[in-house]
């Protein structure tokens, strides 16, 4: 993964919790929420990487930290080899042009008082792109057409409430595209959309990365979309990557027991075929009190004594026994 477009190394985002006055007096240590805890991965040009995992596992926080919206506690993020963590607001601006984000809910991510035209022009004004008014309008139209809103003229002067969910999400994508970014962080881009329009938006993202060499980091709940569209899949659990590898390998031959449990919950295509989802016992532990040893241990169906002692790291090309291929790694002592 050398020479990657985006390189995340040992990224952690910890949030200190509020201490009561009594706790402060007794000198009790400040407790921290470890939202993201030592995450490393890379993203290449034209590559789509899917991050999956349940709510609260740190998927979104990772994306926020990459685009400078959340301050990483430790670790670095590099864009084309240049570090972008800890930059000042002013120095961060050119980076922001290159790293764009798409949010989950297209009903909330567009300012209801802005027409489509203004939503698209604002980022250009911030970054001084497009030159004249006419130049910006031309770019806006182009971005809309590219996002599948055609004819673009019909959409420029509409308000968000006059658009459907899918159209709104396409406007969000267009607003990211006008900046000609290199990296697109898509935070559950289709989870709020009707099933019928999901495929359209997803294949739009797929086309973009192929034609424009865009690196896309897609956060999702949905393993089947991840398997279908992504090149690689990263599985996160409690702030850490537990398994990553080529999408096909992760889905066909999962290594980590957590991934296996996730996959068992994906319904079969044939409704007559009964699936037996492997329900994990217990709740996700509090990210304040992360279990010792392997953090998945309390819920793991196969955990043994070894798991209590060591916190497993991602092992490169873990075990030949599982039939693992190159680049397929898991953080499990038993693999």
């Amino acid at each position: 993964m050398s020479g990657t477009l985006l390189d995340v190394e040992d990224l952690s985002v910890h949030y200190p919790m509020r201490r009561g006055p009594l706790q402060a007096l007794t000198g009790r240590a400040r407790r921290v929420v470890r939202a993201v805890d030592g995450v490393s991965f890379g993203l290449g040009r034209g590559e789509m990487v899917a991050v999956v995992g349940e709510s609260g596992c740190g998927k979104s926080t990772t994306a926020q930290a990459i685009c400078g919206m959340a301050a990483p506690t430790t670790g670095t993020v590099r864009l084309d080899g240049a570090e972008i963590t800890g930059l000042s607001q002013r120095r961060l601006r050119p980076v922001r042009r290159r790293v764009q984000m798409i949010y989950q809910d297209p009903y909330e991510s567009l300012d209801p008082l802005f027409r489509v035209r203004r939503t698209l022009e604002e980022p250009m004004l911030i970054h001084g792109i497009g030159g004249s008014r006419a130049g910006r309008a031309a770019l806006a139209e182009e971005a809309l057409e590219r996002s599948g809103l055609s004819p673009a003229r019909a959409f420029l002067d509409r308000y968000p409430h006059e658009l459907s969910g899918g159209q709104r999400q396409r406007v969000s994508i267009a607003a990211a595209l006008v900046l000609e970014p290199d990296v697109l962080l898509a935070d559950e881009p289709v989870s709020m959309l009707d099933v019928s329009v999901r495929a359209g938006v997803l294949s739009l993202l797929d086309t973009l990365r192929r034609t424009r060499d865009l690196g896309i980091l897609m956060i999702t709940h949905d393993l089947s979309t991840a398997a279908h569209f992504a090149d690689r899949i990263i599985v996160m659990y409690l702030g850490r990557i537990v398994e990553q590898g080529p999408a096909r390998d992760v889905v066909r031959a999962p290594l980590h027991p957590y991934t296996k449990a996730l996959l068992s919950a994906v319904p079969e295509r044939d409704p007559r075929k009964r699936t037996a989802p492997q329900v994990l016992k217990g709740e996700t532990p509090d990210p304040v009190d992360i279990p010792s040893g392997c953090r998945f241990r309390p819920r793991c169906p196969v955990a043994g004594d070894v798991c209590a002692g060591t916190d497993p790291s991602l092992r490169p090309d873990a075990g030949g026994a599982g039939g693992a291929t190159a680049g397929h790694q898991a953080a499990c002592l038993l693999v």
Binding site: M69, L92, R96, M101, Y103, S109, L110, A175
Partner: peptide
């Protein structure tokens, strides 16, 4: 989210 979006756009 549109405030977040605006911030993410710089």
């Amino acid at each position: 989210d549109y405030v977040l979006t605006a911030r993410a756009k710089g």
